[in-house]
């Protein structure tokens, strides 16, 4: 290997070391744990698929996976529907000099703690919270009712957070689209709606897909929001995983379930890989 090649490997070494220390090794340990098993207080270090069989044989674990997928899918769709118009307005309708201020104002509420924000939503959605009281005052409800402790509340908490995240990735993509493309389309007779559908939307899809994928990954692995706002009405995977370790310290079972979740995320990544073009964001 020549000096240039050696220098290349030397420069890449920190990245490889980082990846090995914080991904490859932990992942390998987790994979190893997943084929061991817990018996009483003892960790049995014999390889078997018992944890995976247990996961597949118990309907409540499969229900937890299904709930996670359902809540995450609804969250991603709603977040995109809210984030896209917001990003579009910021990118094309707000004057350039006000865009930065608009972005700061949009993300300002997220400088608070995620945990505090979730509990704040709990108070807002509770029976004596502002939503219930307002609806009663307006005559839309005959008596107060709680909107908390449901999958709907969990989705609301997620959408509140992820709309802003998605708006940022979509905005970053939209501002890269040259205005000349739209002008050219309109010169050729396209209406504003047609230039959006045939020019802007396809060009902004990479930003949408990357934001949607990040939202998917973060939402499906989130424990806090379902725990606080969902009221344990139905379990999602992170809650089911934590149940294994809280008292029983059954890390082998928790590892197997975490790997199943990771497989699902990997499958979604592969399915959407053709649209995930990081260089476009």
């Amino acid at each position: 290997m020549n000096r240039r090649g050696l220098a290349g490997w030397f420069l890449l070494a920190p990245a490889f070391l980082w990846l090995a220390a914080f991904f490859v090794v932990p992942f390998a340990v987790m994979a190893l744990y997943s084929v061991w098993r817990r018996e009483g207080t003892q960790l049995v270090r014999e390889a078997s698929l018992a944890n995976y069989e247990a996961f597949l044989s118990k309907s409540y674990f499969l229900d937890a996976l299904f709930n996670s997928l359902e809540i995450t899918a609804v969250t991603v769709v709603l977040s995109v529907l809210f984030a896209y118009p917001l990003a579009y307005i910021l990118a094309f309708l707000v004057p350039r000099r006000w865009q930065r201020l608009g972005l700061v104002l949009a993300i300002l509420p997220f400088w608070t703690s995620y945990l505090v924000r979730s509990y704040s939503w709990l108070l807002v959605l509770s029976e004596n919270g502002v939503i219930s009281q307002t609806l009663v005052t307006l005559g839309l409800l005959s008596e107060t009712m709680s909107f908390a402790n449901s999958n709907g509340a969990t989705i609301l908490g997620f959408v509140h957070f992820f709309t802003m995240l998605l708006a940022l990735t979509i905005y970053a993509n939209l501002v890269q689209i040259s205005p000349n493309y739209r002008r050219a389309a309109e010169d050729l007779g396209a209406s504003r709606l047609q230039s959006f559908i045939h020019v802007v939307l396809p060009l902004s899809l990479p930003g949408v897909m990357i934001g949607a994928f990040i939202t998917f990954v973060l939402a499906i692995g989130d424990y806090i929001t379902p725990q606080i706002l969902g009221g344990n009405r139905e379990l999602v995977m992170p809650q089911a995983i934590l149940l294994q370790v809280q008292r029983r310290a059954d890390f082998p079972m928790a590892s197997a379930m975490s790997l199943v979740l990771m497989l699902v995320v990997s499958a979604v990544f592969l399915a959407s890989a053709r649209w995930l073009k990081m260089d476009r964001v």
Binding site: Y119, L122, L123, T144, S146, N149, Q227, G231
Partner: peptide
Amino acid sequence: AMVGDVVSVQTALATGD
């Protein structure tokens, strides 16, 4: 109406849920 940890069940009782 819900199943929750210490803070969640306390909050539910305190807020009237």
